[in-house]
Design a protein around this nucleic acid. Structure first.
Lengths: 149, 149
DNA sequence: TATTGTTATACTCTATAACTATA
DNA sequence: TATAGTTATAGAGTATAACAATA
């Protein structure tokens, strides 16, 4: 039996000692804010990522896009459908191979990408306002080095 | 129309310029490895987190646990059911308030926590092997400062 | 046989809302 | 009325597997 009046304070040192837990919490914070930023622009996190890669790699195929995003080809179909329906990209044909598509951003899609890129920069300026420019660059760099063997 | 022979290389500078994308990728890497480490121990990421908080805060209630983990109370029920079924924790009663439970780790649960804590440290030693101790501490610290206004 | 894109399906994680019992 | 816990449900996000068209 335990006395009532549960204290409202709870410690989580057992979790905070791990980098991974801090990463999870930070990522969920970023994800929530990012979703709210992208929504009025007509993008989700995943379609934003897909558009980013397509803009940077004109005529990329869906399989190559799947590799770049580290998701399955079946998942790409949904994303590409979504972006094509919004007229941000189009499925071009490839000369000499009728199996694959050549994905390209439309002029609308290019403009949408520019708009989204700017909005996401602003979103990060807000979320990382507590960090100096050096700390922010350091965080990005350190994250990019996780998991390499 | 586009010539065939899609190059296998794909750039993702449009995404890598953002801290958030690097964080997502790093987190997914961590999560995948962590899940494989916890599975043989009989824990999932979420039940690991719940056990961590219960061990550190004996007699915590489910509502308070939900706050600590930043999840809904309904989600806690599932986690606590799972940990109780495994006999890692027990639902004690609270003197003076029959609505709430006082969650405590059993001796089995304490031992399980010690085992898991050690395993997760080893998992992080592997995942962050490319970082110096200072860089790893810096990463953890920087992540802990994300999103504060 | 292998690859590209597709569909259907299922699984995980989590949130919402309605409910009960207690306070 | 408010709180603690519970249940049912639904929505993302993603993975798996089987398939048709093409190479």
């Amino acid at each position: 039996m335990k006395k009532s009046c549960e204290p409202k304070v709870t410690t989580d040192c057992n979790l905070r000692q791990f980098v991974g837990y801090n990463m999870k919490r930070a990522f969920l914070t970023v994800r929530e804010d990012l979703a709210s930023v992208l929504e009025p622009i007509g993008l989700r996190m995943t379609s934003f990522s897909a558009l980013a890669v397509i803009v940077e790699n004109p005529d990329i195929s869906q399989s190559r896009l799947a590799e770049a995003l580290h998701i399955e080809r079946s998942g790409v179909v949904v994303l590409v459908d979504e972006l094509e329906r919004a007229e941000f990209i189009e499925r071009g044909r490839v000369e000499g191979d009728r199996r694959q598509y050549a994905l390209r951003a439309t002029p609308i899609g290019e403009a949408k990408w520019a708009e989204a890129e700017k909005a996401v920069h602003a979103h990060e300026d807000g979320l990382f306002a507590d960090l100096t420019d050096e700390e922010r660059a350091s965080l990005k760099s350190l994250l990019g080095r996780v998991g390499r063997k």
